[in-house]
Nucleic acid binder design. Structure first.
Lengths: 254, 254
DNA sequence: ACCTCGATTTGATCCAGATCAAAGACGCCA
DNA sequence: TGGCGTCTTTGATCTGGATCAAATCGAGGT
C-alpha cells in the first residue's frame, strides 16, 4: 500500500469510537463527544492480526487492555503437558486483559480465532483519564463488574448443569451476543473447534459433537460443520434452568 | 448498653482503618493517612450481625459494598425449587457485592455464617472519592481484577479437576487466606456445612464427607466435625495441578 | 484429481461421583 | 435427662459423560 492509502486509513480511524457500532457495549458508553475524543486520543490501532496470532501470553507484562473491533479471540491457559484449557471466547466490543490489572502481568494466552482488529488501550493512560472523566471511571467499574457476574454465571453453569444444558447455554449466550452486535442471532459461524467448545464447557469434544448431532435430530439446530442455524430457539432456551447467579470473592483470592 | 458505651465504641471505630490489621488486603491499601481518613469518613459501621442474617438478596437495590471486618459470609443463589448454589465464602478484608455494580441490583444472597461485623461503603460516595484519590481508584480496579482472576481459577478448577483436587484446592486456598489474616494456616474451623462446601465445589455432600474421611485416613488431615488440622500440607499441595488460570470476558456477558 | 493431516463423527466400554438409603452423632431446648 | 431435628458418616447401586478406538470428512497443497 502507498502512503496515500495509509493516510486514508488513519483518517478513517480518527473518528472510530464516535461512529463505531459497538460504542454502547464498549468503553465510550455514557461519555459525551469531547470525552470520547479524549479517549480516542490514547487508543493505539495496530493493523489487523491473522488467525492464530497470539496477542499476549502468560507472564507478559501488563501494559494495555484490548477491545476487539472485528473478529474473535479465545483466551486459554496451557498445562505443563501442553493441553489447553479454554477460558473464554471474545467478540467485538469485549475487553481483553481485565484479569491482568491485578498483578501487572497476564495470566493466560489470548489468540485470534480469525482475522481480528483490536483497539489497544494503554492502561496507565486509561487510568489517568478515568480520574478526570467520572463516567469513564464508572464504565470501567461496570465492565469489570459485568465480567465478575458473567464468570459467576459460568461457575454456576459448570456446577449445576448437564452437558446438554451447558451447550444450550453456550449457544443461547452466543446468539444473544451476536444479536447485540447486529449479526443474525439464529444463523452464525462458530470460529472455534469442537475441542475448544468442549474445553470451555468442561466436556469432552466427543460429547460436544454428539450433542450437536442430537440437537439436529431433534430439529433444534441445523448444523453444517462450523455453520449453525437455530431452528427452535424456544426449545433451546427451555433447556436452561434459570441461573440468575451472582457472585463475589470466591476462594483462592486475596 | 448506655450512651457512654456507645461513645466509646464510636470512638474506637473512628480510627478503625488506620489500625485495622486488614488494611493491606482491603481498600485502604496504598493510601496515605489523610486519604484513609477521607475514606473512613464515608464508612458506615453497623452493629455486628448474627449467624443466619441476610445482608442482601437478589433484586435488592445496590447501594453499598461491604467489607467483612470479622466473621464470615457465604454468597449463594437459590433455584425456584429452593435449593441453594453456593458461589463463594468470604473472610475478613474481602469485599461483598462487586458483581452488583454492573446493573445496580444484587444478584445473589449474602448470609453471615457466624457473628459478623461489616464495614458498609456507600458506592456513590466511594466512586466520587475515587475520582479525587487516584490510588483509591487504582485499588478498586485491582480488587475487581483480582475477583475476575479468582473466578477464572475457580472455573479452571471446576472444568479440569477431580473431587479430590477440588477439596485439596479449597483447603489450601482457605489455609492461605487464614494465614494472611494472622490466623493459623493449619488449624482452623470451617464455618460452613459439608453441604455448602459440596455446593461450592460442585460435589455431592456425601462426596465431601468421604473425602474428609479419606484425607484423614491418609494422615493428611485431622478432622473433627468442623475443626480441621492440616497434618501434611505438602501432600495437600501436591494434589493440585498447577492451575495458573487467568482470563477475561467469557460468554453470557455483554 | 489425488494425497495428507487435522477435525469431526460415531460406536463400545468404563468409571468417578451422583443418588438412594439408613444409621449414627451432635446440639438445643423443654 | 431425654427427645427432636439437623448435620454427618457410611454403605450400595446407578449413570452421564469420559475414554478408547475407528471410520469419515474436508481443506489445502502439489
Amino acid at each position: 500500500m502507498t502512503d496515500k492509502s495509509k493516510v486514508v486509513s488513519i483518517d478513517g480511524i480518527k473518528v472510530a469510537c464516535a461512529n463505531c457500532s459497538l460504542a454502547t457495549l464498549c468503553l465510550p458508553y455514557g461519555l459525551d463527544a469531547p470525552d470520547i475524543e479524549r479517549l480516542e486520543s490514547i487508543i493505539k490501532r495496530n493493523k489487523p492480526i491473522q488467525r492464530g496470532h497470539v496477542i499476549f501470553a502468560p507472564g507478559d507484562r501488563f501494559r494495555s487492555l484490548y477491545v476487539i473491533k472485528t473478529g474473535s479471540v479465545k483466551t486459554y491457559t496451557q498445562t505443563a503437558s501442553g493441553d489447553e484449557h479454554v477460558i473464554g471466547f471474545h467478540l467485538p466490543g469485549e475487553l481483553l486483559g481485565l484479569d491482568a490489572i491485578q498483578d501487572d502481568a497476564h495470566g493466560c494466552f489470548a489468540k485470534a480465532l480469525e482475522t481480528t482488529a483490536l483497539c489497544e488501550l494503554p492502561f496507565d493512560k486509561l487510568e489517568q483519564l478515568s480520574t478526570s472523566i467520572p463516567s469513564l471511571q464508572h464504565q470501567m467499574l461496570r465492565l469489570l463488574s459485568k465480567e465478575v457476574s458473567a464468570e459467576a454465571n459460568m461457575i454456576s453453569l459448570l456446577n449445576n448443569s448437564t452437558a446438554e444444558e451447558r451447550l444450550a447455554s453456550f449457544l443461547v449466550g452466543l446468539s444473544e451476543r451476536f444479536r447485540r452486535r447486529g449479526f443474525s442471532p439464529t444463523d452464525f459461524f462458530l470460529a472455534m473447534s469442537r475441542q475448544d467448545i468442549g474445553s470451555y464447557l468442561g466436556l469432552a469434544l466427543e460429547t460436544v459433537s454428539r450433542l450437536f448431532t442430537r440437537f439436529q435430530e431433534h430439529g433444534i439446530l441445523e448444523v453444517d460443520r462450523k455453520h449453525v442455524k437455530i431452528r427452535d430457539f424456544d426449545r433451546l432456551k427451555h433447556m436452561l434452568k434459570h441461573h440468575t447467579a451472582c457472585h463475589s470473592t470466591l476462594g483462592q483470592s486475596s
